[in-house]
Write a protein that binds this DNA or RNA. Structure first.
Length: 285
DNA sequence: CCACAACCCTGAGGGC
DNA sequence: TGCCCTCAGGGTTGTG
């Protein structure tokens, strides 16, 4: 489940092998893995273009070519990596797109679940309505605690659901949402508009911290994610709650709970992240 | 704005 | 042992 730190790690790993290479060929065995345009048009347009840059926006990998953007979303099980020509793509039975490179190697997109997609477009916002409506990048300098708090104003939805909303913040997924809420000691079902200024500031800080640490650990290899060199990241070794249902909380020892919020498995500590109670009316003096 | 269902798929796991 | 069946998993889109 690649989220922001995993996608960032992939981008960093692909920069050296890709930038400056020219695309010489296109191959695809699953048309639905091409988001746009149709595969024939994709092939005709992409061949001959040189990779000028590779960056990340939310969970999208964005390669700037001469005249287009080559965009990849890994979704749950997608992998993107450069393979040497002597390794047949059948070595990875889930390869669905290959782009030949001018140095003889191949950029391969592999995806067992076939949820991921590759796009070729001149305009990032054109690929999906969601891409056009992405919220701020959580690690940008402009994403301050004040901005975060202002965006939560008037939102009655659960914190967990809001953190997963890509139009609210771009790039946070299930794992890092749970980890950020745990560190901020906030219950996942807490209504966003009930946070104090201090609680909002704490959550802002923990969202940034878990993402930064995830990048430092080169992503979390929970099941399918691999770095472009095929090795696993290390971030999963540092989880406090994700995937630890029933195990003792590392802070207080209480057994961790798993519930469903916004149709996602949600892990939390019932002691460290107490349920929000209705505000007590202040006693009359 | 919000809650929820459906969708895209396959591997894993349970039942027999 | 192995077959059949069910469903988790998560981001996105659509519906009410």
């Amino acid at each position: 489940m690649p989220e922001l730190p995993e996608v960032e790690t992939v981008v960093r790993g692909l920069r050296a092998p890709l930038v400056g290479r020219t695309i010489t060929s296109f191959w695809n065995d699953w048309p639905r893995s091409i988001g746009m345009p149709d595969p024939d048009s994709f092939a005709a347009r992409v061949v001959g273009q040189t990779v000028q840059a590779i960056d990340r926006r939310a969970k999208y990998i964005v390669c700037t070519l001469d005249h287009d953007l080559l965009i990849v979303h890994l979704k749950m099980t997608g992998r993107l990596y450069v393979a040497p020509p002597d390794v047949p793509h059948e070595a990875d039975r889930w390869v669905h797109v290959k782009l030949g490179l001018s140095d003889g190697r191949e950029l391969r997109f592999s995806d067992s679940r076939k949820f991921g997609k590759v796009f070729l477009t001149g305009d990032f916002a054109s690929i999906t309505p969601g891409a056009a409506a992405l919220g701020p990048e959580p690690l940008d300098d402009s994403f301050t605690a004040d901005v975060f708090r202002a965006r939560m104003k008037g939102r009655s939805t659960a914190l967990k659901a809001l953190l997963l909303d890509q139009s609210f913040i771009a790039g946070v997924g299930n794992i890092y949402a749970d980890e950020a809420l745990f560190r901020a000691k906030l219950h996942p079902l807490r209504r966003a508009d009930t946070l104090t200024k201090a609680e909002a500031a704490a959550l802002h800080a923990t969202v940034q911290a878990v993402l930064r640490e995830g990048i430092d650990h080169e992503g979390a290899s929970v099941n399918w994610y691999r770095k472009p060199d095929g090795t696993t990241g290390e971030a999963q070794r540092h989880f406090y709650v994700y995937g630890r249902e029933g195990e003792p909380c590392l802070m207080c020892g209480a057994p961790l709970h798993k519930i469903r919020v916004a149709q996602r498995g949600t892990h939390f500590c019932p002691t460290c992240q107490p349920e929000a109670r209705p505000r007590k009316r202040r006693a009359a003096r």
